[in-house]
Design a protein around this nucleic acid. Structure first.
Lengths: 194, 194
DNA sequence: TTTATCCTTTTACAAATGTTAAAAAAGGTT
DNA sequence: AACCTTTTTTAACATTTGTAAAAGGATAAA
């Protein structure tokens, strides 16, 4: 795998979770493609059933949905993050969410139908994606704890510390809905001290 | 598999997610055992690394932890639910959480070390547990949405509708912390109308 | 029954966040 | 630059939830 392969960073990412043998890597390459989306454009419309697993090569994307007509961000993905509409991919139901490029973003798209088909012959791949899901699950458990027991101000400041990029590259309204508060509340928090 | 096997309900549960062949069932039986815990007793102490996947045969259990000295319930499991301290099982770190029997409860315990070992020879099992994790992940995503965008009163009433058992079998203080509110708030909500 | 303990509710007040509307600031386009 | 649009902040007020303390109920043990 040459380091200038379009899938280089994807395999680096996989490697940290479960190393793949070369057959599995070739199989992944054969079902993957590069997609580039302009700023503020959606990858796929809300309402379609999700059939693709995305990886952010370059740029920044988010998963969002409309809650009572309000745009709510569920998740942000930076370079070298996976971005998956799990609630559709894992249930087969149409997704009420969309993936949007916050900046111009280059994705690797992996066909989920083809990927799941490969699991029968390449258990390596099933193991990798099992572990990916396990880690994503643990992350959401921790996020629930954070939402339930830390005030919005604390969550904002923690976000600021852990991921200063967030604030520089993402409109505050998206950060507010990601934190589960209104834009007005976030502005108030930002204005207080400092 | 006779219907009076101690693992009958476990396999019924698995069947709905991913049917197992008989080799896989036998393997599961060989690494599983029945554990009975008295009311209000813990299965395992906080601080131990989780090495067991539990299934509630009879009774009712919860996962809880201490947040600033306060007992917080993360999850309830009724009959025929799995109960897993994922944050420890999937990371290998000591668990800050414990499983407690809310009533006298009979569990099936499955050794996770032995289970993960079986995945190499019985891909059936890895597929089952991949799917289980996927569904659990989707559930937590939905729970985040519920916590962030529905007031406690609505969450309580939804819980009441979807799972009336909760209120009859579980002390209200546990329900309050599960909903992410104080016991006083829950009491206020209950007292309002109706 | 009596006592002790735990669970639940009530009350009064404080703090955090939501709602609405308007103003200010920032970005893009002609 | 001038204009339009979007984003962010500010203000005033309403609502929700938290905190602390006390009282009332329920349950279990002596």
């Amino acid at each position: 795998m040459s380091s200038d392969s379009p899938f280089h960073h994807l395999f680096e990412f996989f490697n940290q979770i479960h190393p793949l043998n070369s057959d599995s890597k070739k199989a992944i390459e054969s079902i993957s493609s590069i997609v580039t989306i302009a700023k503020n454009q959606d990858l796929q419309p809300i309402g379609a059933t999700c059939k693709t697993i995305y990886f952010v090569k370059k740029g920044l994307a988010r998963i969002y949905y409309y809650k009572d007509g309000i745009d709510v961000t569920e998740y942000f993905a930076f370079e070298n993050d996976l971005i998956i509409r799990a609630e559709s991919l894992f249930t087969g139901k149409p997704s009420q969410k969309a993936i949007q490029a916050v900046e111009q973003t280059e994705f690797v798209g992996i066909s989920s139908d083809l990927l799941f088909g490969l699991f029968d012959t390449l258990p390596d791949l099933e193991r990798l994606f099992r572990k990916i899901t396990e880690l994503a699950y643990v992350n959401t458990l921790n996020r629930i704890e954070s939402i339930q027991f830390h005030p919005a101000e604390e969550r904002y400041h923690r976000l600021l510390e852990e991921n200063p990029e967030f604030i520089q590259r993402i409109p505050l309204k998206h950060i507010a809905s990601y934190l589960g508060i209104t834009q007005v509340s976030l502005s108030r928090i930002r204005g207080q001290k400092n």
